[in-house]
Design a protein around this nucleic acid. Structure first.
Lengths: 116, 116
DNA sequence: GGTAATCGTTTCGCAACCGTATCATTGCCC
DNA sequence: GGGCAATGATACGGTTGCGAAACGATTACC
């Protein structure tokens, strides 16, 4: 059974889910920050500043600042790599997991209302 | 044929599409700006500052500033309502349509790669 | 016609983000 | 050990967004 997500459906889903996120009082992440957060929580570790910068196609300070902000929000945690102490390993937190799970529920809910 | 979009699939789709958007050099919109843009292009007019502010649950200056930014980018256009000259009507542009279409293609493409 | 209400914008002080350049620390390798 | 490369963080100047408050323009009301 193949599912085909059409462009119009995709856009409606996107709008509905983004609207639901904007309307909530949760942390207001930028697109870059949210992309980082999703990647950290969906892909297996380890995650480094350098790797994320290459992935997103941005400079390292962008990643450092994003981690500063999301770290202050409790969404991620940073630790020095014990093997190579130059590296910083980005780790998940309970709060971050909850944020991601909430996002997933929002998308699914809006998708169901649209029949996607 | 019922389609069930699971949370994990939804999140992977979200990450992939957002990553593709971040990696492109296009305009870097905030979540609020993108939500406004999607709404204007998906819902029938008229669209007003007041209506968008109520929809998103934000103050009017937020909408004004978002329209300033996206107007400078050519993504939307503002006109005074001739019937009631207090109102401002937000109109679509060719450039905005292309942006939205590009976003739709990105989501569909990433969705197909994920088998969603 | 004069007052009140509505609509969108502007102003203000503040915080966050950006890109470039630079820095301190750590590991590599001869 | 000493020079060099790599990693992440920081400094800097500039831009943009934010919320609260105040503002002009327009319309509604009595």
């Amino acid at each position: 059974m193949t599912v085909h997500l059409r462009a119009s459906e995709a856009l409606y889903l996107w709008r509905s889910a983004m609207l639901a996120m904007v309307r909530t009082d949760g942390p207001d992440l930028t697109q870059r920050q949210l992309t980082i957060l999703l990647h950290v929580y969906l892909e297996p570790p380890p995650h480094t500043v350098r790797g994320l910068a290459a992935l997103l196609g941005v400079t390292k300070p962008v990643i450092t600042r994003a981690l500063d902000t999301m770290g202050a929000m409790g969404l991620v945690h940073r630790t020095r790599d014990k093997a190579d102490r130059r590296n910083v390993v980005i780790q998940r937190t309970v709060e971050g997991s909850e944020y991601i799970e909430r996002l997933g529920r929002i998308i699914v809910r809006e998708g169901e209302e649209l029949g996607v």
